[in-house]
Amino acid sequence: MLDDRARMEAAKKEKVEQILAEFQLQEEDLKKVMRRMQKEMDRGLRLETHEEASVKMLPTYVRSTPEGSEVGDFLSLDLGGTNFRVMLVKVGEGEEGQWSVKTKHQMYSIPEDAMTGTAEMLFDYISECISDFLDKHQMKHKKLPLGFTFSFPVRHEDIDKGILLNWTKGFKASGAEGNNVVGLLRDAIKRRGDFEMDVVAMVNDTVATMISCYYEDHQCEVGMIVGTGCNACYMEEMQNVELVEGDEGRMCVNTEWGAFGDSGELDEFLLEYDRLVDESSANPGQQLYEKLIGGKYMGELVRLVLLRLVDENLLFHGEASEQLRTRGAFETRFVSQVESDTGDRKQIYNILSTLGLRPSTTDCDIVRRACESVSTRAAHMCSAGLAGVINRMRESRSEDVMRITVGVDGSVYKLHPSFKERFHASVRRLTPSCEITFIESEEGSGRGAALVSAVACKKACMLGQ
């Protein structure tokens, strides 16, 4: 009897593995994704193909990295998701002549009506938060230079001027797309009239992360975010950046690689679950690469896999709870928690219980395998993109072996128990001629924006502006 049951459990697990095998990517698959990513990057950089390229390769006008001589107080704003952060950054000489960066910050959550109302409502709310922060720190009387981390696709015309191309991540505030974001912020500050600010720089969160990590390690020339969304930036040779005049030196390019796949480059790798996630998203047909990796989508992918296993009578005796059938019910943090389970399955059992399920031991094991399959594919897909960037940098610099540091931020990278190990191992397999160091950014977005502002202020002083 026991043997029969054991055989049935083994057969069930084997069927589960057959279904989950769809998520496995072979090294040849990853090399294919990497080569296609490089081709799209090239198209994004070139003037004649930029418009139709899915990977936009947006110039950021960040050319210099901090040298350690900029000092002063800077205000930093960070808008990239449902939370908005205001930070005071003091850049100065530390002990023994070292450079020191001290920060104080406060988080504000953005109400739904500000995210989806008008641009005026959104930026009025942001300036209200700045006003509140300055009151708390008794700094209303000071006109501070301000660095703005704005983590949406922007076409820069200068370091302090950028046109919002399109909202992502659930934002829909009308009247912002096609307009200068810094102008919208300046107008809102003017409307309030109770404080003055000098907006000197606007950067993407990947750029802010790279600059913040450069402060720790001067070989950091790539910034990457794996959180709600997924994106990367890197220092490109100016001669390859056709959208900006000049051939000397390097400029940081914001790849906006989340949109890779929007022209069909990933079609052969998309599964039924991916198509369902895409169809029910706020932007169907867009940001397809990001939807395979980002935390906004990972939990939902797992939920759809679990429903398939229920329908195949391989999980929960073929019956799903009402909660499990509800879109968004299986949160991405559950994926991390399930994979963090120590082996007694308590954590998995508790999560499934909150979803109205009474799982068996085998159910718990199957749910864990589903989570591992989805998150491992995410790590491997992400590795193909980064390997594409790094191999490109090595080739354009004609280096036999390139040493490089990548600064990384984002909740999936930082909080998932195995993502970074799987990701690092896969990147290294795909970049055999590179020695890569990964560092995690601390308060990256805010500190990085302030350091970019410090560079901009120093330049302005040198130019006598």
Rank of each mutant, 00 (worst) to 15 (best):
K296M: 09
R377H: 02
G295E: 04
N83L: 03
C230Q: 08
F260Q: 05
L309H: 00
S64T: 15
E22S: 06
H416D: 08
R308C: 11
H218D: 15
A259L: 03
T118Q: 07
R325H: 12
A450P: 01
R192Y: 00
M107D: 05
G444K: 04
T206E: 01
A259G: 07
L30F: 13
S375V: 09
S396T: 11
R325T: 12
C434F: 07
S340F: 08
R368M: 08
R392D: 11
A188Q: 01
G388C: 04
E95K: 06
I126P: 01
E120H: 07
N313L: 14
Y214S: 15
R333T: 14
V55M: 05
M37Y: 08
Q287D: 04
L463P: 14
E435S: 09
A208D: 00
E435Q: 13
K414H: 13
E339D: 05
T82N: 06
E70K: 09
M393V: 13
G410P: 02
E242K: 01
F438D: 03
H137M: 15
G410F: 03
I189M: 01
F152Q: 00
D274K: 01
D267Q: 13
V277T: 02
C220L: 04
D3S: 12
G80C: 07
K32M: 10
T49F: 09
Y108P: 05
H317V: 13
V241Q: 01
F23W: 13
Q98V: 07
A282W: 04
S441Y: 12
G68K: 15
E22I: 06
E339L: 14
G229W: 01
E256C: 01
E236Q: 05
R46G: 13
S109Q: 05
T405V: 12
V222N: 00
S54C: 10
G72V: 01
S76V: 03
G388E: 06
V401N: 09
Y61I: 02
N283R: 14
M462A: 12
C129V: 00
V182F: 05
R325N: 12
V338W: 05
F195S: 01
K31V: 10
T332D: 05
Q347T: 08
V101I: 08
L270E: 15
I163G: 03
L165T: 01
D4I: 08
A259P: 06
A384G: 08
G175S: 00
V101T: 09
V241G: 00
E96P: 11
P66R: 12
G407V: 12
T149F: 04
Y234T: 00
S64Q: 11
W167L: 04
S396A: 10
T60A: 09
D73E: 15
D341I: 09
G162F: 02
G80F: 03
C371F: 00
D4A: 04
L352R: 01
L357A: 07
G299R: 04
L164D: 01
A21I: 10
S441I: 03
R36C: 13
D267L: 10
E279W: 13
E290A: 04
K458L: 07
R308G: 10
T116L: 08
A456R: 15
D267P: 13
S212G: 04
Q138H: 13
F171R: 03
S281C: 09
E268A: 14
D205T: 00
C220A: 15
S212T: 03
C364L: 07
V71Q: 15
S127F: 07
E157P: 05
Y234N: 01
T326F: 13
S54T: 15
S433P: 15
F334S: 11
E256Y: 00
L243G: 05
C213E: 13
N179D: 04
V335F: 06
P417S: 12
E256H: 15
A379P: 05
I293M: 08
K15I: 13
V101F: 12
P145E: 11
R368V: 12
C461Q: 08
E14M: 15
V406L: 04
T168E: 00
L45A: 07
L451D: 00
G294S: 11
A329Q: 15
H141L: 01
R377W: 01
S373V: 13
E157N: 01
R368P: 00
G117R: 06
M115R: 13
A6K: 00
P59E: 01
M462P: 14
V203N: 03
K169R: 04
A450Q: 05
E312H: 14
V302C: 13
S131Y: 06
L2C: 09
R394D: 04
G175D: 05
Q239N: 03
F171N: 02
R43E: 13
F438M: 06
R358K: 11
Y61H: 07
S212L: 04
N254P: 02
R345N: 08
A456N: 15
E242L: 10
E28Q: 09
R63C: 13
I348E: 07
N391P: 02
I126D: 00
Q347W: 13
L266N: 13
V401M: 15
L58R: 05
L415E: 03
E339N: 06
R186K: 15
K90I: 08
A329R: 14
G117E: 04
E268P: 11
E67R: 14
G328N: 15
W257R: 08
E372K: 05
D187H: 09
F423D: 05
R155D: 07
I348Q: 08
T65I: 11
A11N: 14
I159L: 11
S336I: 01
R85E: 02
K161G: 03
L75Q: 02
R63F: 10
P284T: 11
D29Q: 00
G295V: 01
S54H: 13
L309I: 08
D409C: 04
H380N: 10
P417M: 12
E27S: 12
K172P: 06
K13A: 09
E51H: 15
K414V: 15
W99R: 15
L266C: 14
I366W: 08
E95G: 12
G356L: 13
Y349S: 10
F195I: 10
N204Q: 03
T255Q: 02
K56I: 04
S398W: 07
T362L: 08
M202G: 02
A460R: 15
A10K: 09
W257H: 09
R358E: 06
G117W: 03
P111R: 08
S174Y: 05
G227Y: 00
R186G: 07
V55P: 03
I366K: 08
E242W: 06
E221F: 15
G448H: 02
